[in-house]
Amino acid sequence: MAELELVPVKTRILTDKDDIVDMIEKYAKDLIGPDDVISVAESVVAITQGEFTRPEDLNPGWLARIMCRFVPQKGSLSSVYGMQAAMNYEGEWRMAFAMLVGMAAKCIGKSGVFYQMAGRQAALIDDVTGTMPPFDKCLVFGPKKPVEVAEAIRERLGCYGAAVADVNDLKRALIVGVSPGVDPKELSRILIDNPFGNASQRTPVVIIKNYAKVLAGK
């Protein structure tokens, strides 16, 4: 009986000069079968799209300096630069309104409202040191059109499916984009222990072997 197997794929350091689909084909083509799902780290997809900025290119305002103090330290928006970068992307007053509503919602026991209202970059942005060198000196935004990226990977590689995933070591696995036929909730469960290696490991791609066979057997 087929079993799921997670196979990290090592690459060189990927940059904004690379195409993520080309790189997956180059490094993983011979490892991929028709029943497999290819998952790729969302921060690396974003880097190949040029979706990053440097702290020195930002000019944090008073609103960012105040709002970042209300974000738990483990969050990227707890940094004044992370907050300002997200505000530049989503709009200062949108995020300020979202925080006010989110704080009010917490008072009645409802969490997560701020991130629901503030825009996708508020949830996806990685602060400095949040991704692989040399981009650990940058703030990395969420990727553009992740669903289209996943579908392009599936079509090129001939696999069962593909996904762009935001996974960390805090048991958080968010599927940012997925091709048709792949269950994002199931994929989150599979990736929850973070098989990616965005630092010295350089394994931003993980192949989930036998996904389709195991899914069909349930």
Rank of each mutant, 00 (worst) to 15 (best):
P133E: 08
T15C: 03
C159S: 13
V71Q: 14
E92F: 14
R172G: 00
V128A: 06
N194T: 00
G158H: 14
P134R: 09
V140L: 02
A104W: 06
Y81I: 01
P204F: 05
V176T: 10
V147D: 14
V113G: 08
P133V: 03
G217Y: 15
E155Q: 11
K209C: 02
M99P: 01
A46D: 05
T11K: 03
A104T: 04
K110Q: 12
M67G: 04
P55S: 06
D18P: 00
E148P: 01
M99V: 02
F70E: 05
K145H: 13
V128D: 06
L187K: 07
E92P: 02
V164E: 02
L31Y: 14
R54K: 12
G50I: 07
P60G: 11
G50F: 13
A118W: 13
A118I: 09
Y27R: 02
M67S: 07
K213Y: 03
F141W: 07
V80K: 13
G158F: 12
T11R: 06
P134D: 11
M117N: 05
M83I: 10
D19V: 10
A96R: 08
N59Q: 13
D166K: 10
V128Y: 12
A163T: 03
V45H: 01
V7F: 13
C107Q: 15
E90D: 11
R12A: 04
S188F: 08
L215R: 12
N59G: 08
K29E: 14
A96P: 00
T131L: 05
K29Q: 08
G217Q: 14
Y27K: 01
D36N: 09
K185E: 14
A162W: 13
S76M: 01
P143Q: 09
A163M: 10
K213W: 04
A28M: 04
F97K: 02
M99H: 11
S79A: 01
E92D: 09
M132T: 00
D126Y: 15
A98Q: 05
L6D: 02
Q121E: 15
A216Q: 10
E3Y: 06
V147Q: 15
V176S: 10
L139T: 04
T53C: 15
V71T: 03
P184K: 14
R156C: 07
V206I: 03
P134K: 10
P146M: 14
G197I: 01
V71G: 01
G91F: 15
M87D: 13
Q73L: 04
D57F: 12
K209H: 04
Y115C: 01
G112Q: 08
I66F: 14
G217I: 05
A173E: 03
I175F: 11
F52A: 02
L191E: 07
P8N: 08
G177Q: 12
A46S: 12
I125C: 06
L139F: 02
M117Y: 12
T48Y: 14
R69P: 00
L124M: 10
K74N: 02
A104Q: 04
E90L: 12
G119S: 12
K209V: 01
A98L: 08
F97A: 13
R69K: 14
P55T: 08
G181I: 04
